[in-house]
């Protein structure tokens, strides 16, 4: 059913916490996501011209890099992995005409039943985060499953029962857990660091949270200082040469 589950207190609310302070933008999460999911729940994932000039395919995780300039933080690079946020108010689910798109009542994971998806793409239009990607080969929509085939997989050792992106992150910027449990690592991180919903104004109430970048704790010399020092070290002769050659 594409109507949202009515259970007032779902047992679990599974999701991710992504620390924008420690993410180094290595794309390992995106690569391991592709690696696992190319053989997982939504397998296969299209991967056209992978080594050519115009590679194109479905990825559930895309890592952007931005330059952030603010009074508190100065100027810094922020790496931003973007994937499905498993929203509490997911319009991608309610717009689905077939019931293929659904939110699980037990743990809040938003999934697609690709056996009945008609490929109308309306859910991708309804998602403000660009989290759903269309599989042109299979003619159906695909998305992050929160690695449903890992987190409940009893064939895996218990420590591996986390999403592939979390398992692989070398800087421990990604955390997985139950937001309904106030003692869980994800709940503690969010209450300690604080977080804002992405595009809060649209009211999708995303479950995944991003921890904001923090002020650097070590002293960093700004570029301007370094440059002026270098210029100051130049001898008058070099300065004269520079001026003559610059004409």
């Amino acid at each position: 059913m594409t109507s949202l589950p009515h259970t007032r207190t779902p047992k679990k609310k599974l999701g991710l916490v992504i620390d924008l302070d420690t993410c180094v933008g290595c794309h390992a999460c995106a690569v391991n996501c592709k690696e696992w999911n190319a053989g997982g729940f939504h397998a296969p994932l299209p991967d056209h011209d992978p080594y050519g000039g115009t590679p194109d395919g479905v990825w559930f995780n895309r890592v952007h890099s931005y330059e952030l300039e603010s009074k508190d933080l100065g100027c810094r690079t922020v790496n931003f992995p973007r994937s499905c946020l498993h929203c509490d108010n997911p319009a991608c689910v309610t717009v689905c005409p077939t019931g293929a798109s659904y939110k699980r009542a037990d743990d809040g994971i938003v999934l697609i039943n690709t056996d009945i998806c008609i490929g109308c793409k309306l859910c991708s239009w309804a998602c403000p985060y660009g989290a759903r990607e269309f599989d042109e080969d299979a003619g159906v929509m695909k998305k992050c499953t929160l690695c449903i085939d890992r987190i409940y997989n009893e064939a895996l050792p218990e420590e591996d029962r986390v999403p592939a992106c979390v398992a692989t992150c070398p800087s421990h910027a990604r955390h997985f857990g139950d937001f309904n449990d106030p003692e869980s690592q994800v709940s503690v991180l969010v209450s300690e660091r604080g977080s804002m919903d992405l595009m809060e104004e649209l009211g999708y109430r995303p479950v995944n949270k991003y921890l904001p970048p923090q002020r650097a704790r070590i002293e960093i010399n700004s570029f301007e200082t370094t440059e002026s020092t270098a210029e100051g070290a130049c001898s008058p002769l070099l300065k004269l040469l520079d001026r003559l050659l610059s004409r």
């Binding site: 952007h64 890099s65 931005y66 330059e67 603010s70 690079t77 922020v78 931003f80 595009m199 991003y210």
Partner: peptide, 18 residues
């Protein structure tokens, strides 16, 4: 900025994912 969850500051795209 609001798409990234920042309440203030100037944000510019630096590198695209692809």
């Amino acid at each position: 900025a609001s798409a990234l969850g920042f309440s203030s500051g100037l944000v510019r795209p630096l590198d695209l994912p692809h």
